[in-house]
Computed example of a mutant assay.
Amino acid sequence: MSDATPSLPELIDMQIRANGPISIASYMALCLTHPHQGYYKQADPLGPRGDFMTAPEISQMFGELIGFFCVNLWQQMGEPKSFTLLELGPGRGTLMQDALRVATKAEGFGDALHLQLFETNEELKARQAIRLSQYNPYWPTWIDAMSDDPLIVVGNEFFDALPIRQFVKGATGWHERLVGLKDGARSFGLSPTPIPESAMPEAVRGAALGEVYEVSLAGADVMHRLSKAVGRRGGAILAIDYGYPQTRTGETLQALRKHAYADPLKAPGAADLSAHVDFGALAEVANAAGLTVHPLATQSEFLTSLGITERAAVLSKANPGEAGNIGAAVDRLTGTGQMGGLFKVFCAASPGLIPPGLSS
Rank of each mutant, 00 (worst) to 15 (best):
P6C: 08
S7C: 11
I12E: 02
M14K: 14
Q15T: 12
S23G: 15
A25P: 09
S26M: 05
A29D: 15
K41S: 06
Q42Y: 02
R49A: 14
G50Q: 05
I58H: 00
S59P: 05
F62L: 08
F62W: 03
E64C: 06
E79T: 12
K81N: 08
M96H: 08
L100K: 11
R101Q: 14
A103H: 09
A106N: 13
G110W: 03
R127I: 10
I130V: 15
Y138L: 13
T141H: 12
S147R: 15
S147M: 12
D148L: 13
I152D: 04
K169C: 14
V179Q: 03
G180H: 01
G184I: 04
S187M: 12
F188I: 05
P194E: 03
P194L: 08
E197Q: 15
E211V: 03
V212F: 06
A218C: 05
R225A: 15
K228G: 10
K228V: 14
R232V: 08
A239I: 15
G250T: 12
R257G: 09
K258Q: 11
A260S: 10
P264Y: 09
L273P: 01
S274N: 11
A283T: 01
E284I: 00
E284D: 15
V285F: 10
H294Y: 15
E301L: 07
T304I: 15
S305T: 13
L306C: 08
A312Q: 03
E322A: 11
I326D: 00
V330H: 00
L333F: 00
K344M: 03
F346G: 05
C347S: 12
A349H: 05
P351H: 04
S360T: 10
